[in-house]
Nucleic acid binder design. Structure first.
Lengths: 186, 186
DNA sequence: TTATCAAGACTAACAGTGTTAGTTTTAACA
DNA sequence: TGTTAAAACTAACACTGTTAGTCTTGATAA
């Protein structure tokens, strides 16, 4: 190697994520990422194809971390309903802890989506819980509804759109339990 | 008026919305909006403060139209549950009909949020339906859960994140009815 | 009919973005 | 010590939102 590199892909991704977390998505520019690493923007192109690929890498890490926490919660103690509530609380806790990363990872821009394979290891175990709650045939519907509820809730919270007072923690738990109870009867 | 204007604010907003609908958010640039109107970009600044204000105007129209449709659905025929299901279907129908506008209006960027006053006229009647379903004390929690579910569901659909097959229409209806049933018991 | 005048358009420019082409620096190896 | 290729660089392009300053226009007053 006639010229040892000063940076690597890992550093680029983690620097970009730090800028994202600290100053928001609009602060993530290639010139700034390069500047933090003591380098000029065009040098980054030896390690990334373009900016989108960099953001996808961040989103992949976010997705992996989120699903890992859900997995831990899914294997917890207690009744079926309590474990599902635990998963929901883990989901919300993660989104609250990493709001900017979560919002970026779940952004509706399809170019920023990490490959679906990231999640697929965890959805089946989660779906199995819903199969137990309702029926095998209903499990995908029940999982999708729960996903929609959880994503919708935390994205509204992050976007400050649940501002009419009341105990958000309690409302979240009550609503999610109502959803589970509704499937239980099926 | 010593120089009759060639454009007005209304034209700017609707041209921007047409570009948004036809070619996505990245196609909405001030130079392009101006070009369609036969004018140069700086001329727009006589009618709008900046680009954000233009996007907010689009989002306000989106929000008004969405809530208007919800209002119509809320006053429909049938039992309480059927009317709530009707509201949910109207919500999803609107989002499907205007996916790009919906996604922009609900974007988590707080600078693009229209003033909350836009919605406030309709949330109370909707909350009243949930008060009837559950209890007065639970109505805000139940409304918030429904809002989270609906927003989460349609935003996942728009983002193509519900791709594992099955009948999405049926899953949506089943999940939302489960949620309502869960509150009914309370 | 002509001069005035301000509204409403324009041009030119700035600082910033992602990105590419082409050039130079670097340090391990023959 | 000279060669060589990896890894940095500079310069530039086309684009963005936005501002300052200038010119064009046409209804009105004389």
């Amino acid at each position: 190697m006639p010229y040892p590199s000063q940076i690597d892909r890992e550093q680029i991704v983690s620097t970009a994520r730090e800028l994202l977390v600290a100053h928001g998505i609009e602060a993530v520019t290639l010139r700034r990422v390069a500047g933090v690493l003591g380098v000029k923007a065009p040098s980054l192109y030896r390690y990334i194809k373009n900016k989108n690929e960099l953001l996808v890498a961040i989103n992949e890490a976010t997705s992996v971390a989120l699903f890992a926490e859900l997995g831990v919660a899914a294997e917890g103690e207690g009744s079926l309903v309590e474990r599902l509530v635990g998963v929901a609380e883990a989901y919300r806790r993660y989104a609250h802890a990493h709001p900017v990363c979560y919002a970026l990872a779940m952004s509706s821009n399809p170019e920023l989506k990490p490959p679906q394979a990231t999640q697929v290891g965890w959805v089946l175990p989660l779906q199995a819980l819903f199969a137990e709650l309702a029926t095998e045939a209903e499990s995908l519907a029940a999982l999708r509804g729960a996903y929609a509820f959880l994503h919708g809730w935390v994205i509204l919270e992050i976007g400050q759109q649940l501002q009419r007072g009341g105990d958000l923690n309690a409302h979240f738990a009550q609503s999610f339990r109502a959803y589970l109870a509704g499937w239980e009867r099926g």
